[in-house]
């Protein structure tokens, strides 16, 4: 299950571009944590990322959704959430 889907590759590029990270999108491990020790993202990043996701995929992320902590856990979980809720 460590194959990277095309959506994961696309979202990884979106993350790197939106947050001007100095990582190769292909190097982001789908199961690696996005926040804290993994990519080390913080709440400003979460906000920036949520805007980009709503613009590209029409998915409005919210934190009182019981799934949100899980949503931002990793690239893979983020993509699963986008897949489920996208309107674009």
């Amino acid at each position: 299950m460590s194959d990277v889907s095309s959506l994961e590759a696309e979202v990884a590029k979106l993350i790197v571009r939106t947050l001007t990270l100095k990582v190769d999108p292909a190097q982001i491990q789908p199961e690696e944590p996005l926040f804290g020790d993994g990519l080390g993202l913080d709440s400003i990043d979460a906000l920036e990322l949520s805007l980009a996701i709503s613009q590209f995929y029409g998915h409005q992320i919210r934190s009182d959704d019981p799934d949100t902590v899980a949503t931002f856990a990793s690239l893979r979980s983020l993509c699963q959430s986008i897949e489920k809720h996208r309107t674009k």
Partner: peptide, 12 residues
């Protein structure tokens, strides 16, 4: 009591 972060949180 909360502290909304995302626009959708603020709206709710």
């Amino acid at each position: 009591v909360g502290r909304p972060l995302f626009p959708e949180d603020v709206r709710l």
